[in-house]
Design a protein around this nucleic acid. Structure first.
Lengths: 225, 225
DNA sequence: GCATGTGAAGCAGTTCACAGCG
DNA sequence: CGCTGTGAACTGCTTCACATGC
């Protein structure tokens, strides 16, 4: 077992945790009691050794000869992901994407609660989306501070994104999910992740233009069909 | 120079190409004539050596002592990304996210043209979004085939995603961008990329719960502020 | 002189393969 | 006997450092 605390988890492992979480959740709903690393790997489209190595970073949760107890493992992963405690989220930029995210089920499901929506358009301000009123972006910093916001989501146009990020950081937000196509500059205390649709499309386009250099398409299952 | 053709481009490099493309596009608009790898790296939040290595995979586009010609380099990258030719895209699942993507500027900008929208809800079918009528998902396969669709975008609920993916694959689509929280199984000829909002949030939550094991937050710039 | 292009070194994550244990 | 947990080997990306060339 790796020395607990001071434990340094590889980022690829962290990124796979939500995947394991979702699949285990599904198995739990199907009342499956135990899974082997091979079965879990199959369902996640990854390598079995990777699953075991990933899980081993957090301790020994399995039983040799049997596998992992689904409920217990699920609980451990959720604990690692900090899903037990609820986190306050704000969304800045209530265009189509902001609206879509505000109404999305995925947010609420995993302990994320939307406590604020922000925009600069007078027409949009005041509108109520998913039970939350849209406020003026100028209130962003104080709102984040007073409502103890953990995560800020940026769905503004790229020109406004840096400003909004600054306001969030100033309001004490320490994690930002950025959908604007721009490289954000943030203090080291703020963890930024970036999602870029058109970049994803361009990557797909690249592989279509270069079917030769496709490399292995990840180890995801892709049964003949 | 690496032997052209048979060239195998590392995936991390491919993923950075759209980033370089966007930043170069910006520089071109500002009428900047040349960039050094250091400047481009700074703007992209990556390491300068990485930029040079990435670009070197495609040939020698720079001038020693000077840097890279912005317009020329931009053109080369766009050619590599295959942005020159227009690609037909369909979106399946016209919920809030599907609507948002259909109206998104990012799609049209980079040579992606939406030629079809699909859903199963009778209320939604027939609606016209961004000038494109929503059709019944049962027409997906034939529509993909007849309109020579290159890329399929899946924004359906998770339960419908695999079915929709199968229909796309059957219709000759060779690239899929999946927003549904499910692991898709597709034939090897189909390249699948996955975007998962709530997974991203969970990753952020993990790092908040473990500020110790944050690792280096990428080499992205994060000036003191 | 200055910035590219690139071998070589370094490092991180993946995969193997098997000892250990239920 | 089966499956986990993990050292060791491997693979591949990143970073360094410098020769090369404008």
């Amino acid at each position: 077992m790796p020395e607990r605390f001071g434990r340094r988890i590889p980022e690829p492992t962290v990124v796979r945790l939500p995947l394991y979480q979702r699949v285990l959740h599904e198995l739990a709903r199907e009342e499956v009691a135990t899974v082997s690393s091979a079965e879990l790997a199959e369902a996640c489209g990854v390598n079995a050794a990777k699953v075991r190595k990933d899980l081993s970073h957090f301790g020994s949760y399995g039983t040799r000869g049997t596998g992992y107890d689904v409920d217990y493992l699920l609980g451990q992963i959720q604990r690692e992901l900090g899903i037990d405690r609820e986190r306050a989220v704000v969304i800045a930029g209530m265009g189509h994407l902001g609206h879509a995210l505000a109404r999305s089920a995925g947010f609420v499901q995993s302990g994320f609660r939307i406590v604020g929506l922000f925009d600069v358009e007078p027409d949009t301000i005041g509108e109520v989306v998913a039970g939350v009123p849209v406020r003026d972006s100028s209130e962003l910093t104080t709102a984040c501070r007073s409502q103890n916001v953990a995560i800020g989501v940026i769905t503004t146009p790229p020109t406004a994104a840096q400003d909004v990020c600054d306001r969030m950081a100033k309001g004490g937000v320490s994690a930002v999910l950025n959908f604007a196509p721009i490289v954000l500059v943030a203090p080291p205390s703020v963890h930024v992740r970036h999602v870029d649709f058109s970049a994803e499309l361009q990557v797909l386009a690249f592989y279509q233009a270069h079917p030769d250099a496709a490399g292995r398409q990840e180890d995801h299952a892709r049964a003949g069909r």
